[in-house]
Design a protein around this nucleic acid. Structure first.
Lengths: 149, 149
DNA sequence: GCTGTTTACTTGCTTTAATCAAGTATTTTT
DNA sequence: AAAAATACTTGATTAAAGCAAGTAAACAGC
């Protein structure tokens, strides 16, 4: 297989895969939140007590836009915000109990949607599938570590 | 590996992969068109002389929204539209010469962006990569043929 | 310890993306 | 020939995202 065929194969995968995992939908996973809002929630969960700036290192949204998303999530009582005592420019944000619950719910739904896709596969096939995904990640993200940071 | 670990592996892949192929960006590939507009262009290329309805069987957008996208692409001279003689409700749309050129340009850019990701891999690794992608597609889309349609 | 500069975040305004609902013209069904 | 369905359009609205200007605090240089 020539490089050009490899590329074509990958692009074929991209087209069908992205459609199948439903990442293009407006509301993510039938919760009331958009993909972007969900990403914020997941990142706060991941980073624990964090800040808008830290979140935006990952998501790279417009600052104003992110500020408003956080505001909305606070008014929905999913997030808590308090001014840092050591640096009063910063506001520490974290998940509220309700936010933790919501994040868990999303996490479950996301797992379920993946499960639905793989459930008809045999044990062995599932192993193969996971192996292939791992192999791809290993190949794609190898040797790029020094470039990425 | 248990099913739950398989799921977690796939979700890990989803997160990093979708980010890396830049499918979340506003303008696709640094052309002046959004992802949705690009999809329309690619579908017209794929389907040849086609209609809004046929395109929307795939994309499932709001009809009005699609109508406006087509309108814009026509005013940009990428698409040509003419009323069907056999069914005057329908309008046949196709790529103009300029549209063909634009589609080719996008196609090249898309290939280039994939090439950039795999170029540092050896011949053998590229084979492996393509093989893994193929294996995944085979597994995911097998036995679903009767459900899909 | 004042003076610019940078950092963290907010707010008002605008643009772009997407949806909703109603409407026209044509074809199909009965 | 009337009713229903199909193909598409248009006006109005909502939601997502971006731009620019602004506040407040921290930092850096002198």
């Amino acid at each position: 297989m020539k490089e050009i065929e490899v590329i074509s194969e990958i692009r074929k995968f991209n087209r069908s895969y992205v459609r199948s995992i439903g990442l293009l939908q407006k509301t993510f996973l039938d919760t009331n939140y958009s993909l972007t809002e969900s990403q914020v929630i997941f990142l706060v969960k991941e980073q624990g007590k964090t800040t808008a700036t830290a979140i935006n290192k990952v998501l790279q949204l417009d600052e104003g836009y992110l500020s408003r998303i956080i505001k909305k999530l606070i008014s929905d009582s999913l997030l808590i915000k308090e001014q840092s005592q050591t640096d009063k420019r910063c506001f520490e944000i974290m998940l509220s109990p309700k936010g933790i619950e919501e994040q868990r719910k999303m996490d479950k739904l996301s797992s379920e949607s993946v499960r639905a896709i793989i459930s008809h596969l045999s044990e062995t096939e599932q192993q193969e599938l996971a192996g292939s995904f791992q192999r791809i990640m290993a190949l794609l993200y190898k040797e790029n570590r020094h470039k990425t940071s």
